[in-house]
Design a binder for these strands. Sequence first.
DNA 1: ATCCTTGCAAATGATTTGCAAGAGT
DNA 2: ACTCTTGCAAATCATTTGCAAGGAT
Lengths: 136, 136
Amino acid sequence: MVNYAHLLNSHDLKATFQRTQILEVIEKYGHTAIDKIYEEVSKVHSSLSLATIYKNIILMVESGVLAEVSIIGSKSKYEIIKDDHIHLICTECGIVIDKILDENTAKDTAKVAEGSSFSLKHRQVNLYGVCDSCQK
Amino acid sequence: MVNYAHLLNSHDLKATFQRTQILEVIEKYGHTAIDKIYEEVSKVHSSLSLATIYKNIILMVESGVLAEVSIIGSKSKYEIIKDDHIHLICTECGIVIDKILDENTAKDTAKVAEGSSFSLKHRQVNLYGVCDSCQK
DNA sequence: ATCCTTGCAAATGATTTGCAAGAGT
DNA sequence: ACTCTTGCAAATCATTTGCAAGGAT
């Protein structure tokens, strides 16, 4: 298990109970939407306010602790920042699965950006389809 | 110029003035968010209702006339369906630029999906950075 | 003529804000 | 102690809905 208090402090954010719980929930589910975070954190902290979730998500995204995963046709989910990767997104159940971004794809996309005098900061590669279990 | 009436009819949608105007605006700007569409179409049809925009966007996405482009940190934009391509998205001004998806990247991503018994339907590759003119 | 679409107004849902009380360093 | 964060309630913004009137085929 990761030390969320340290992760927060290292980004100049105070390690409140709410924040560490938010991170635990996001980590537990891998990719999590606002409602789900609220639902789960409420279980261990019933007086939690939705406003607190919103404020903290915004803050943690700005601070580089979290990344937003924007998804066609539904609400964004949030993940803890990690190395470049691809998302497989199931259009049936909504699950998001991480896959390693292979070097070739990374290079190819970088090349596209260069050819356009576009200064590339980060990328989001989302593949939509139907996951293994939803095919059954 | 494209014949939007025909495009709509071929997808079993009636060619109303509002719909053809929505498509013209989307085409004109390439990638367009709801507010902008509303603002622009209102100029030629002042009694336009936002509800009409929403209903039609949903309908046209379902019918395969439009595609949603979901963007980190801002509202989705819509584009007319076209061949697989990449988006360069400027985090300063919000402009979205289309780039050809090179064959290698297409193959590589397809491979990732296969290796996961995931049935791939479509992909969205978004590269975030700063566009040429915003760099100045 | 028929069925689908529009515009309106109201309902609902999502997100943001200000402020006093409470928690972290 | 000091400053930042929380929770609440209200405000705001975004999206959806039902329905009567108008438009497309």
